[in-house]
């Protein structure tokens, strides 16, 4: 796959914009998933995932083709997600209904770190519950947990994506796991 990706990258660099659509098609689901798990909102996830691809396109000439493209791309996306979380822009789509929650819209998701009443959480479907628990994690633990357990990336790759030492990644995963454990036990 890497050979194909590098071939497409060369074509894009030569000015063939259409070759980029193959790259988008290969990584769109993974990239969207990271953004969705980080942000917990479909519209925002779509916006940030698209933005990540656009930035990748514009800065493609800075990509070192000896390295793994997905690592570079995920790094752009996670940085954008973290920026978005930190800005805490009030551009939530409050009326968007969360599927499978039977009328539970985004009003019930803000602020994400705030705990919902126990009965509400207990009534949640499993998938919504998972996303809710992930969104309650502090963002520095959220990113490592998402990359490790949702994207199933190696610790080494996570350290490259987040540009932090392996030891820091491990510490954050350990603390993230403990934080999640406590969240789940409190119910």
């Amino acid at each position: 796959m890497d050979a194909l990706v590098n071939k497409r990258i060369k074509q894009v660099l030569k000015g063939d914009q259409n070759a980029f659509s193959d790259i988008v098609s290969l990584y769109q689901h993974k990239l969207y998933q990271i953004c969705y798990r980080m942000l917990g909102n479909k519209q925002e996830a779509e916006d940030i995932a698209q933005e990540a691809f656009v930035r990748a396109y514009i800065n493609l000439h800075t990509f070192d083709q000896k390295r793994k493209f997905s690592t570079w791309l995920f790094r752009i996306a996670t940085n954008l997600c973290i920026d978005r979380i930190r800005k805490k822009k009030p551009d939530y789509y409050l009326d968007a209904e969360v599927p499978g929650t039977d009328g539970l819209d985004m009003y019930s998701h803000i602020p994400a770190s705030e705990q919902l009443p126990e009965e509400t959480v207990e009534k949640m479907e499993l998938q919504d519950r998972i996303q809710y628990e992930i969104s309650r994690l502090p963002d520095k633990y959220r990113s490592v947990i998402v990359l490790k357990y949702i994207e199933e990336l190696s610790l080494q790759e996570i350290s490259e994506i987040l540009d932090m030492p392996l030891g820091t990644v491990k510490t954050r995963i350990h603390r993230g796991r403990e934080a999640l454990r406590k969240q789940l036990n409190n119910l």
Binding site: Q33, R37, L126, Q127, I130, E133, I134, I145, I150
Partner: peptide, 8 residues
């Protein structure tokens, strides 16, 4: 629990 998250 986290790993049972559906693929998006």
């Amino acid at each position: 629990f986290v790993k049972s998250a559906a693929h998006i």
